[in-house]
Write a protein that binds this DNA or RNA. Structure first.
Length: 502
RNA sequence: GGUCCUGUGGCCGAGUGGCUAGGCAGAGCUCUGCAAAAGCUUCCACAGCGGUUCGAAUCCGCUCGGGACCUCCA
């Protein structure tokens, strides 16, 4: 009954024990709001939403911090970063905060669509410039950073002499330092020649005149480096050492490695007890990412307006699709895979709806002991599987084992008293807890329309009358026309007819 | 080039050395006025070659293939 999670830092599954009993501090790297979120972004936020929900289900009080990266080098997609001294009127100029607002709103919208619970705190980088500057000053004071031309760099070589820089990402420090000597350094990153060593990373960057986001600092006008915000905000809200830090695998290096270095110098302690990293979503076997130019934006996914998509996909379908694989495995996207997930999810959800309507029998003794035991075992495994490094696909597999049992009871193929009353109750409770509360899934169809409901009842009543008079022309007309409108009706075994919006 | 991960049936995906993953698709059957749905049954696997073992998809080695990171990146 105890949770084990795979710790990227030790590369082992470890039994989870929170630093403060009963409480968990969790930090997850949030989005950079300089562009629209795509399918790849959905994975960490859904995966860690499930972790968050599961920890809460295990009665932990969780403080979940997920940042918004809204500082840095900004330009609008398809539009060059504009010169601040351009002659354009104020309102025509690119206003960074306007962009940030737009994409933050879009991100929040997507998270809501995915039914992700909002984090406890969602700090922004721009709102914590002061904290970052203070932290950088501290690192300088401790001798692990140096200032060059208004920029500040972290001294990796000095740090690595006494700490294991590279451990998290499995990097060999000597090679990183040697990268210095590589001739094919084609990175024309500004300031590269200012560094003492190529492995050093920026804590603060001096802003060139055309840079539109800039703040005053002890070193001149500039903006924070790429890694300091997470260290500063995590420390502020979760303390110098906290339980879980999550994010995509692609952030392990250099981002998380650098976070460890910064925080370790400032706080004299390693910041994170358990590092959790989700794997990538691939498309045709390749990571979905801006640089590969193969992204499917969430807006395109939900609306079906991408060349690779044959139809729109409901956010719950996408969420289910992601939960069907383990968070540490790569997940290959395709239109067909999503269609399969959609069908699977609909079938599972319908079984769940059927389950909720089952009326318990009166027998406390199971007439089919073997079945009762199997059902009980499948149900108990829900938690066991989740305890084993959040194995959502295994839980889902068990749910699919149970679906035929539920449907058979509903259709009378299995008698209700084949299983104990208590087993049925457990089944209802477990399904609601895991499907709704922990997996965060909800119904996909919008058949709860209050106006439509009585209209449908009327239509189905007319059809029923026609059928009873063997007037199949009328009954089929109703069914076919409704199907054409996207409403599917099914004649149930008990003589009733159910319907839903496809 | 360096570090690491990975290769499961038509597709997607679990797999802790021995016992059914699961889903989608396919085939057959049951139910049904006909459908749909549901239920039952069924076909199709472990990249290749060696090795360890009583026994390997699972451990080791090699070969081939794929990917991630080394640069902003979930």
């Amino acid at each position: 009954m105890s949770l084990s999670i795979y710790n990227s830092y030790s590369r082992k599954k470890e039994v989870f024990a929170s630093i403060t009993p009963g409480h968990v501090g969790m930090y997850v790297c949030g989005p950079t709001v300089s562009g629209e979120s795509h399918l790849g972004h959905a994975r960490p936020y859904i995966s860690f939403d499930v972790v968050y929900r599961f920890l809460q289900a295990k009665n932990y009080k969780v403080r979940y911090v997920r940042n918004i990266t809204d500082a840095g080098h900004f330009e609008e997609e398809g539009r060059e970063a504009e010169d601040k001294v351009s002659t354009k009127a104020q309102l025509e100029k690119l206003e960074p905060m306007e962009l940030v607002q737009k994409y933050t709103n879009l991100f929040h919208w997507a998270m809501k669509e995915f039914n992700c619970i909002e984090p406890s705190i969602e700090p922004t980088a721009t709102g914590h410039i002061v904290e970052q500057i203070v932290m950088i000053e501290d690192i300088i004071a401790k001798g692990y950073a140096y200032v060059v031309n208004g920029s500040v760099y972290f001294d990796v070589k000095k740090y690595a002499a006494h700490h294991d820089y590279g451990k998290l990402s499995g990097r060999v420090i000597d090679e990183l330092l040697e990268a210095n000597n590589r001739t094919q350094v084609s990175r024309d990153l500004e300031g590269q020649d200012e560094k003492r060593d190529a492995a050093d990373f920026a804590l603060w960057k001096a802003a060139p005149p055309e840079h539109i986001m800039r703040w005053k600092s002890p070193w001149g006008e500039g903006f924070p480096g790429w890694h300091i915000e997470c260290s500063a905000m995590a420390t502020k809200y979760l303390g110098t050492s906290f339980d879980i830090h999550g994010g995509g695998m692609d952030l392990q290096f250099p981002h998380h490695e650098s976070e460890i270095a910064q925080s370790t110098i400032c706080n004299h302690t390693s910041p994170v007890k358990y590092w959790m990293h989700n794997n990538m979503i691939t498309i045709n076997g390749r990571k979905m990412g801006k640089s590969y130019n193969n992204v499917i934006k969430l807006t395109e996914l939900f609306s079906g307006t991408h060349p690779l998509l044959s139809q729109p996909f409901h956010p719950m379908t996408v969420r289910f699709f992601i939960l069907q694989s383990h968070y540490r495995s790569p997940l290959d996207f395709s239109n067909d895979a999503l269609i399969a997930s959609e069908k699977a999810f609909k079938r599972l959800w319908e079984a769940y709806e059927n389950l909720k309507k089952l009326v318990p029998g009166s027998n406390e003794n199971a007439s089919d002991k073997e079945l009762d035991e199997k059902v009980t075992q499948w149900l108990h495994q829900f938690e066991e599987f989740m305890d084993d490094d959040i194995s959502t696909p295994k839980v889902i597999a068990n749910m699919f084992e149970l679906a035929p049992v539920i449907n058979s009871i509903k259709d009378g193929l299995i008698k209700i008293d084949a299983i104990k009353v208590s087993t049925l109750q457990l089944m209802k409770e477990r399904f609601t807890t895991f499907l709704e509360n922990i997996f965060g899934l909800k119904s996909i169809d919008g058949a709860t329309n209050e106006v439509l409901q009585p209209v449908m009842e009327l239509l189905l009543e007319i059809r029923k009358e026609a059928k009873s008079k063997k007037d199949f022309a009328t009954s089929d007309k109703i069914r076919n026309q409704l199907t054409a409108m996207g409403i599917v009706i099914k004649d149930e075994k008990d003589g009733n007819t159910s319907w839903n919006i496809a």
